[in-house]
């Protein structure tokens, strides 16, 4: 209960606008002298830096002339809101999704969970097929169609993935989605939005996400609760196969919010640049749409 209150306080504090302040504390007066702050470097490093390699440390011209850098920068006018939502999703993951996924993964063996994942991947075939067509990637669309037929008929409705077997080798799942299609058509990503529950996005990818919902079969199967329930189960199953991914991303980051935003931007950029290659999904967004 205590932690809930803390979180609410945290969210409020973040929403109130201190969200954009990075975790910087000015050196406190009581802080130990600088030398003590610096952990003893490995001997080899000390030798190297003391060994007169000072030339290496001179001023530089930007190695890639800012080419790469420019592309991976995204405007973030909603940063305070986004940071608050990031915190919300973070708590949602650690308090709800992760415990549920862990319990679920104890009850269900990994093989079965991979099958569930295959089943859902097969179900979302129309998204990849239609978007491959929209991107004029006919080879990809044909491969998707082949995968769908083979996996549905011989893979017990998509539970198995025989299409990826050595004999058939239709391994390349086309990771096509409507946001990507729009990007390939030249629609810019706009600015960054960190949606509660859905995670990193942009206006373009939000439109894409909504568009793709209509290509997802279960939306036509019954009331929306069925669809929502099915999606939640899919995401929990997904999370159970990726426990630890988000944690290590967060741990490695200096500013996790910026790190996740950057992973999203880099990932989407690559997807649009290399539409024919299949970059595998990143486990960054909690319920990031595939």
């Amino acid at each position: 209960m205590k932690s809930h209150i803390a979180a609410v306080a945290l969210c409020l504090a973040l929403a109130a606008g201190c969200a954009h302040e990075p975790v910087v504390s000015d050196q406190t007066p009581s802080a130990a002298p600088k030398a003590e702050h610096t952990p003893a470097p490995a001997p080899a490093v000390a030798a190297k830096t003391a060994g007169g390699n000072l030339d290496d440390y001179q001023d530089i011209e930007d190695p890639d002339q800012g080419k790469e850098e420019e592309k991976v920068i995204i405007a973030d006018p909603l940063e305070p809101f986004n940071r608050a939502m990031f915190q919300f999703n973070d708590k949602l993951y650690f308090w709800v999704i992760k415990p549920v996924a862990q319990g679920y993964s104890k009850a269900v063996p990994e093989k079965a969970r991979v099958s569930v994942s295959n089943f859902y991947a097969n179900l979302s075939f129309p998204i990849r097929f239609v978007n491959s067509l929209l991107q004029a990637n006919f080879e990809g669309a044909a491969s998707e169609l082949g995968r769908f037929i083979i996996n549905t008929v011989w893979g017990i409705g998509g539970l198995l993935d025989p299409a990826a077997s050595k004999e058939i080798d239709l391994k390349k799942k086309q990771p096509a989605d409507f946001g990507q299609t729009l990007g390939i058509y030249g629609v810019g990503q706009g600015f960054y939005i960190h949606w509660p529950i859905f995670g990193p996005s942009s206006p373009r990818d939000t439109v894409g996400m909504v568009g793709d919902i209509f290509l997802y079969p279960s939306i036509y199967l019954g009331p929306w609760e069925v669809w929502a329930g099915s999606r939640v189960f899919e995401k929990v199953n997904d999370a159970s196969l990726h426990i630890g991914d988000y944690e290590s991303l967060k741990e490695a980051a200096i500013d996790p919010y910026v790190a996740v935003r950057d992973v999203y931007v880099q990932y989407r950029l690559k997807k649009i640049q290399h539409k024919d290659g299949p970059p595998p999904p990143v486990g960054s967004g909690l319920l990031e749409d595939k």
């Binding site: 990075p22 790469e68 920068i73 200096i254 910026v258 790190a259 950057d262 880099q266 595998p280 990143v282």
Partner: peptide
């Protein structure tokens, strides 16, 4: 790793910090 450059990822974080500090 998985199409995300380590250098670029940290660069975004560091330039965000250095813009304000």
């Amino acid at each position: 790793v998985e199409n995300v450059s380590l250098v670029l990822n940290y660069r975004t974080q560091f330039s965000d910090i250095l813009a304000k500090n």
